[in-house]
Design a protein around this nucleic acid. Structure first.
Lengths: 227, 227
DNA sequence: ACCTGAACACCGTTCAAGT
DNA sequence: ACCTGAACACCGTTCAAGT
């Protein structure tokens, strides 16, 4: 018989608490994670959790770190750096797709370890790409910011209407809203509304990554030519 | 005699409520905005606010929209499109610098009007840049995602330690933390830590914008060459 | 050392009652 | 039509008391 709550027998630990938190977040979103829900699932008192975890912020950080660490572990050895960057970016994208609360959490604290993990992965490949040391920080943070920005954007859209409708229906609805905007004030958004329903989030995400990679390649070449 | 609270005489209105909310957010950050603080400043009952504003989310959206609308109003007419994009991006950056809560709010709801305003501004310039219609959406959202991503990142760092220390001290502290990371697991972040203290956020932000602009230019050329 | 669970100081939101 | 302010249903966090 499946029982969501854990047996009271085994003692509490950071690890068990974080796992339970991730399960609650995946099932109900960021709003569902409360210390009361958590202690109920763990069959313990709400105060007990504070013996193992400093506070809710620390819990969210730990949960995010675990999820991102798993995503980063899938390292592409032997693949060319630009391919590796695409794979890494898609890995983050798919992770946020599977755990939408991670998007907001990454944006909420850019100095947390999970973000450093992504920066490390991106930076290593930027270096492998041949970018000289002075340019690596800017190139890596540009990629990082884009990844966090678009992935977070996608996360909200997908999670907000996750229950009521699917992504396609949601996009069609947004498109019809955009199409009704003031033509004088929003000509571009209106024009782009037509592309919205049939657009593919992953494809758009990759197109952005490729744009930045092209920019990196271009500035690398001009530097070599002029230097 | 300066009095922060408004005179009870004038009637409540959406506009007065939003202005008061912005003032509270600017002074105390996102955590300071409560309906109790708001009603105290407006010298009214907490329930009265609900007659003019649907809920807290709507209030935050309206506040963000007003701040971003002001930033977008400074339109650079007559400047070349790439310059206009840089100016526009910096405008958003500086706005978030002045109102750090805007960063989180923009990331929190990517479909709100404030985000559309930015997308509209970016998209118009992307079109002026000569990008063909099929490529504009991807190019504009790439720029948008980068702007929201890095600006949000900066906002958190600057606001979190706004009271205790200045940005330079904060960066020096982060750098020394990064320098102590495991060399095997985080070689890149450790390398980059050395650049952190003397780096300029605005410069890094512009470098990222330029990278994407270079990528847009490159794919525009290759398309023309191959087409 | 670890856990319990009532209690505290907050929230956003509602709503009967006023003007 | 607009405003009041107590009340409700929640939060995160603390802490005396247990084992």
């Amino acid at each position: 018989m499946a029982d969501k709550s854990e047996r009271r027998a085994d003692p509490l630990s950071q690890e068990r608490i974080v796992s339970a938190a991730i399960a609650i977040l995946d099932e109900g979103g960021a709003g569902a994670l409360t210390f009361r829900a958590l202690s109920a699932r763990l069959a313990t008192g709400s105060g007990a959790i504070y013996w193992h975890v400093a506070d809710k912020q620390a819990l969210l950080t730990a949960a995010t770190d675990q999820v991102i660490a798993q995503a980063m572990a899938r390292g592409g050895d032997g693949t060319p750096p630009d391919e590796a960057i695409r794979a890494l970016a898609l890995g983050v994208f798919d992770t946020i797709d599977a755990h939408p609360w991670v998007g907001a959490q990454l944006a909420d604290d850019p100095w947390q370890h999970a973000v450093l993990r992504i920066l490390e992965g991106v930076g290593a490949q930027v270096a492998a790409l041949g970018v000289p040391e002075e340019g690596r920080f800017n190139a890596a943070t540009a990629l990082l910011s884009f990844i966090l920005g678009l992935a977070g954007q996608y996360a909200v859209g997908s999670s907000r209407f996750g229950g009521d409708m699917d992504r396609a229906t949601f996009l069609r609805e947004v498109a019809s809203q955009w199409a009704q905007l003031d033509p004088v004030e929003h000509p571009f958004v209106r024009e782009v509304a037509a592309q919205l329903p049939q657009h593919d989030d992953r494809q758009q995400f990759l197109a952005g990554v490729d744009l930045i990679l092209a920019g990196i390649e271009r500035s690398r070449r001009s530097r070599r030519t002029s230097g």
